[in-house]
Every structure is written in structure tokens, then in C-alpha cells.
Amino acid sequence: MLTFIARRLFQSLFVMLAVSLLAFTLFRFVGDPVAQMVGQETSIEDRERIREELGLNDPVHEQFFRFSKNLVTANFGYSYRTRQPIGEMILSRLPATLELGFFSLIISLLVGIPAGVYTAIKTGFLSTTLLITTLVGISIPTFVIGIALIYVFGVQLNVLPVFGRGETVQLGWWKTNYLTVDGWRSLILPAVTLGIYQLTLTMRLVRSEMQDVIKTDYIKFAMARGINYRSVYLHHAFRNTLVPVITIVGLQFGGIIAFSIVTESVFQWPGMGLLFLDSIRYVDIPVMSVYLVLIAFIFVLINLLVDILYFVIDPRVRDRRQGA
């Protein structure tokens, strides 16, 4: 188990290296960093001096090394647009995105998985209705769902706040929504907006995996042994669908991060997505590249977690990896 994790860590390191190379290329070669930093009237000599100070005349591999070292020590540099340290900017916005993303992931799993199992093993009115709903669900763009929710709950019924985080509580540097009533009320609409798409994806995936498993011989054999249906479906079949489902849930977290950009834009939720969007609009390259590295880091962590879960669930994986 330990060697296996060590190996995965090693591989993750490679991925991070590749991503930071990409981020470095972005940072160094897309546009001229100096031109972005200084005004029009700066003289050529001054520009050259700044180049030298920033080390932009050093050999490229040295620059890359410095760039990576800065990343590892969380020294992310300054934004072209706001002139603030990027680390602070991100830190102040990270909790908002994580809390929103986590809550909508919970919604999508808690509803999506049972609904997927149900539609796989039962046919009938409810099942059909759910399936039609999911088809509509994956077809409506997130931002349209957000707008519709705002219109109904914010404008027409006027029962829920439609933008911003509302009242929050400061825990150290972490600003949380989870501790106030107003915070929860503000969270509902964006989280539902973000969760619906993932929910339908989860449900459709669980359903198709479950349908595949139900057709296997070992499920038929369990049926032929008279094991009660509940156990056949929940104990035997569902367990076997978990492996692919976990993979996708891992990927879904990516989807959540991505679509949080849209949701944050619709609800003016002050998270990282909004920050990223602004950095694209204003070609704020340093923020873009740090965002990229950070997202990659989160994905690597999640993938690691997914691999460890495989290990726990599937005895075949355990044996193969230990034998190797």
C-alpha cells in the first residue's frame, strides 16, 4: 500500500511539473511581462533595467527553476491588473468557491446516486419521469438555470437572496457561509444551480453502470440462488458499480470547479471563478497561470484519493498492486 502511494505521488509530481511548465510558458511567453507592468511613457532603458531586475534575461531553464521554486513556496507574484499579491487574492476567494462546490457536490451525490440506482432497476412512471428530467437537465445551460432561479425565487417570490455571499463568519483567514442562517440562504440558489448539471450526470452514469452490472453472470447467479432482491441490487450490484462511479465523481469535482466559474458569474459569488474570469477578460496572465497550477494541484489530490479508494473497494486492485 505504501509503495503504491509512493509511486502515485511520484507520478503526480510529474504531472505537476508538466503543468507548471505550461504555466511558465504562459507566464513568460504570452505577451511581454514588462510591457504589462509599466506605463507607455517608461523609457527603453528603464524597461531594460526592469527586465534585468526580474531576471528575464537569465537563461530560460533558470527562470523556470525560479518560477517553480516560487510556486512551491507559495510566492505567486503580483497581478498585472490589481497590483496585489496573487496569493492573498486567491486565499481570500478560495473559501467561497470551496464551500459552494462542496455543498453542490453533496447535493448531486445524495440525490444523483439513489435516483440512478432507482431508474436502473425499476421501470414505470417515476423512472421515466426521472429520465426525461435528466435529459432536460443536461440540456439546459447552467447560466439559464441560474437566471430562471433568480427570476422565480429572487424577483417573483422574493424569498432568497440572489447575489453575493450574504452574512459570513470569519474563522482565521477562512470566511464561512456555513455558520449563519443568511449564509445558508445565500448558498442555496448558487449551489442548486451548480449541482443540477452534476446531479443529472451522476444519475445517468450510475444508471448505465448499474444496468451493465445487472446483466453480468454473477448477478444472474445471485438471482438463481434466491438471494433477496434488495441484497442483490444494493450489496452485490451497487458495490460493483462503485469503481467506475468513483472515477467519475473524481472528475466531477473538476466539472464543479469549472462550472463554478459560470455560477459565480451569474450570482456574483466572490470566488476563484470570478477572479479567473476577470483575469481572462483583462489578460492578467500571472493570475491565469497560478489559477491553472492551483486547479491542477487540486485535481492531482483528488486523483490520489480516487486511487486509494479503488484500493479499498476492489480486492483485485489490492492484489495486483501488492504483487507488483
Binding site: V15, V19, V30, A258, I261, I280, V283, I295, N303
Partner: peptide
């Protein structure tokens, strides 16, 4: 695999951002 873990919308945004820079 790496690209798959970057969701489509993020990739598209990034490419668009790079194009704006270039």
C-alpha cells in the same frame, strides 16, 4: 488524461485567454 481532468469550459477559457494575450 491530463486534459480530461481540465473540464472543457476551463480549457476553452484558457485557450481564449492565451489568444487574447498573443
Amino acid at each position: 488524461d491530463i486534459q480530461l481532468s481540465l473540464p472543457a469550459i476551463l480549457t476553452a477559457l484558457l485557450i481564449d485567454g492565451v489568444a487574447r494575450g498573443i
